[in-house]
Nucleic acid binder design. Structure first.
Length: 782
DNA sequence: AGCATTGCACTTTTT
DNA sequence: GTGCAATGCT
């Protein structure tokens, strides 16, 4: 993706619209010609706030493109006066291709992209005003976790007890809510939050010294910039006279703030969204942003896009029956002129393997029957781990596929290593990257040597790289010093090359040799693995070369690295004839003729963590809604009676969602109507379940409890499977049998539900602390 | 310091 | 099953 940067924004904002801005072929009328009346209204209301409430498949992205085109064609706006914020890079690219045709070369000044990439770009230009170097590193989740892990080690916090991943999520939440470390510390409740509070300040400090920003910073720092420097805000307000925000229901608080700051003056803001498709609350998205838009902008014009162009009547009816179970929503009347189409199919399977095989067979037969290409099919799942069984079945059936997400290209170890080296070249203060590569491949700078350098840096209040530059003063043992000096010289040499303006791909290629990465990769793992890794590194270098060719301006490397950090492999989706596999979250905004929504089982979809809270279940339901509405012609739902999870297979219960949906449009295999049990999971437990009063069930996590009740305790060799029997069954004094450790006596029990652990003294294996969720304990009858 | 081996915790979704 | 972190050996 290329982001040419006009040298001086203030000049551009007063530049007159020039003749070549708008292509002669497009007139305001021709732009509006292929829109329906609602879409046209939204596109033509160019002044003042506009709220577009759009159902799935209503052509909202199309409407947005036309709106921008209309602004240009009527000469109301010049390209640089328009800002379009999208949810994915892919959406931005699709819009851009249309605008490019319309505005020609001038379209390069029209800023269009995700919040993160747009504001990374703003920070590149303005970050120095708030103390960030232009070549700042962008830390992804993985980098942030590493930083936290380091901090925890130094602060003597047990990373096992307080998972860095959860801490990171908590801090991210705090940052999104714009809570300072001090404020957070004041309101921290319970040990987990206190640990997070303790780390918050240190984490922020670590990132700042490293001249690094995490994903949240990319939104927060611009807010800080605008608050501290009103002239900067004025400059951007004056420049962007028309704001467009897609998927507004998924904006978080920081994004909301940014939008309001920028729209504050002219209020020419058009937001588009569907509250029913809000699925990112877990990362701070606040559905209230869209629900209260009219309160924020009382003069807002509301337009509803309710006609669905994508799906058949049956699919739409199913979708409405899903979302109808949610309380909090804006009522919409979706309709379509498309025919009823085929009924929705339900696939029931014994195991996840069989589920996958049935999907594979459906794909092959639909392909043969209707002449669909493989690219017509998509398989959605709730968790990335589910892709494996589907992949296996497709591979066996010879069906080509692609997996979107999961471990993407830029997250592979060898790619991240290479990126870390490159980041260091332009941002030597980047401690996380330095740590990552200083001794990989091994070059004799071990933990002790690193500690030495870190202590020296601490002492001198400088970065570790600066300590390395003065290695001779640090008093290192000669061996360590030699290694550090060699590393320093190697890096310096490449830094000089970058500064001298050498082609970045050449620098990168030279780095693979000089660092020993090439050699290391060639000897690691099996020949195939090592070849694949080496090819990934080559592919990265190829990407750099390509980027450099497209973007001949200065600072190519730093811009490339920043953009890479924000890239997802959804952006790289091609149109090759392959079946697409992805999570339901990743499917948002996409469309396929045939879609499979798989794993409709309690605890998986809805996911167990969500089952405890009504709000979370509603979000799961919206996720189901999003998945179902991706399908244009044919929708399949599937579930398996048993599923292999956490290293063992366990029985599963079909999802409540299957009981909620409109059974009239769904057909089981063979064409029979599906069996449903309405109200199976409703709140009043006495009706549906037989629960002993005052039992330990009262305190159980709902997921656990439902699973237990729905799948009655299994008997295995005449003995009860403890986890499934429930919390009360395992108590101090009881004897249990563990598949690996053999028999033992329970000494103590702690935690509840999923978190429940027990200390057990095994006869042979000794004393162990075991998580009941994973251990398949059985009670020994005495 | 660097390697191999074992053990252990762990799977929600992501810009 | 997987991936990483601690452990122990060279």
């Amino acid at each position: 993706m290329s982001f040419p940067e006009p040298a001086d924004l203030s000049d551009l904002s007063v530049a007159p619209a020039s003749a070549e801005t708008v292509s002669r072929k497009e007139t305001p009328e021709s732009v509006l010609a292929d829109l329906n009346s609602s879409q046209r209204e939204a596109a033509q209301t160019t002044e003042g706030p506009v709220l577009v409430v759009a159902g799935p498949g209503s052509g909202k992205t199309r409407m947005l493109m036309h709106r921008i085109a209309y602004l240009l064609a009527t000469q109301r706006a010049r390209p640089w006066e328009i800002l379009a914020l999208t949810f994915t890079n892919k959406a931005a690219r699709e819009m851009r291709s249309r605008i490019d045709r319309l505005a020609g070369p001038a379209a390069r000044d029209l800023w269009m992209g995700t919040f993160h990439s747009i504001f990374a770009r703003v920070l590149r230009m303005e970050g120095e005003r708030i103390g960030y170097g232009r070549d700042f590193s962008i830390y992804d989740t993985d980098d942030s976790e590493r930083v936290l892990r380091q901090l925890m080690q130094r602060a003597d916090i047990d990373a096992k007890q307080y998972a860095p991943r959860s801490i990171r999520n908590m801090l991210s939440g705090a940052k999104n809510r714009m809570k300072s470390p001090e404020e957070y510390a004041r309101s921290a409740f319970g040990p987990f939050q206190q640990v997070a509070a303790q780390l918050y300040g240190l984490y922020e400090e670590a990132l700042r010294t490293a001249n690094a920003m995490d994903f949240d910073d990319l939104l927060l720092k611009p807010i800080a910039l605008f608050n501290q420097h009103p002239d900067a805000l004025e400059k951007y307000r004056a420049r962007w006279k028309y704001l467009h925000i897609d998927e507004y229901q998924d904006t978080n608080h920081a994004q909301y703030k940014l939008v309001n700051l920028l729209a504050g003056g002219h209020k020419n803001i058009c937001v588009v969204g569907d509250d029913a498709q809000s699925i990112y609350a877990f990362r701070g998205a606040d559905i209230a942003n869209i629900l209260s838009f009219r309160r924020d902008y009382p003069k807002a014009v509301t337009v509803r896009l309710e006609q669905n162009y994508r799906s058949t009547g049956n699919i739409l009816r199913l979708a409405e029956s899903i979302i109808g179970h949610n309380r909090d929503r804006i009522e919409k009347n979706l309709w379509t002129e498309n025919g009823e189409g085929e009924p929705v199919s339900l696939i029931e399977a014994e195991s996840e393997r069989e589920e996958a095989q049935k999907i594979e067979r459906e794909i092959r037969s639909a392909r043969a029957a209707f002449g669909y290409g493989y690219e017509y099919f998509a398989v959605f799942y709730r968790t990335n781990a589910q892709s494996r069984s589907i992949e296996d079945a497709l591979r066996q059936g010879g069906v080509p596929y692609r997996v979107v997400g999961g471990l993407s290209f830029y997250q592979r170890k060898e790619v991240k290593d290479m990126l870390a080296y490159l980041r260091l070249l332009i941002n030597p203060g980047d401690l996380a990257s330095l740590r990552r590569v200083i001794n990989y491949p091994a070059r004799g700078i071990g933990a002790r040597t690193f500690e030495w350098l870190a202590a020296f840096a601490e002492d001198r209040q400088c970065t570790v790289w600066e300590a390395i530059e003065q290695a001779a003063l640090a008093g290192l043992p000669p061996q360590g010093e030699r290694a550090v000096v060699a590393f320093r010289e190697m890096m310096r040499q490449h830094m000089r090359q970058v500064e001298a303006g050498a082609p970045v791909e050449d620098v990168a290629r030279s780095l693979t040799e000089a660092t020993g990465l090439a050699r290391q990769l060639q000897q690691d793992g099996t020949p195939e693995e090592s070849l694949a890794r080496w090819q990934n590194v080559q592919e990265l270098i190829g990407a750099i070369a390509e980027y450099a060719a497209d973007n001949p301006e200065e600072r190519t490397l730093s811009t490339f690295l920043q953009e890479m950090a924000l890239r997802t492999d959804l952006d790289d989706m091609d149109d090759e004839a392959r079946v697409t596999l992805m999570t339901l979250h990743a499917s948002k905004g996409l469309e396929f003729p045939v879609a499979f929504v798989t794993g409709l089982e309690e605890g998986l979809f809805p996911i167990s963590m969500a089952m405890q809270e009504q709000d979370a279940v509603e979000e799961e339901r919206r996720l189901f809604y999003v998945g179902a509405t991706r399908a244009a012609k044919q929708l399949y739902l599937s579930w398996a009676r048993s599923r292999f999870r956490f290293g063992s297979s366990s029985p599963s219960v079909r999802s409540r969602f299957l009981d909620e949906i409109d059974g009239g449009v769904v057909r089981a295999p063979g064409g029979s109507p599906i069996a449903q049990r309405k109200g199976r999971f409703q709140a009043d437990p006495e009706e549906t379940f037989d629960i002993p009063k005052n039992s330990s069930y009262d305190q159980m996590a709902p997921h656990y409890y439902r699973r237990n009740l729905a799948a009655p305790a299994r008997k295995a060799n005449g003995r009860t499977v403890v986890y499934e029997e429930g919390e009360g069954a395992i108590a101090p004094g009881r004897c249990v049998d563990h598949p690996k450790f053999g028999q033992g006596e329970v000494l103590s029990v702690e935690g509840h539900g999923e978190q429940m652990r027990a200390v057990i003294a095994f006869q042979e294996a000794g004393r162990k602390k075991i998580m009941l969720k994973y251990a398949q304990l059985r009670l020994v009858e005495q």
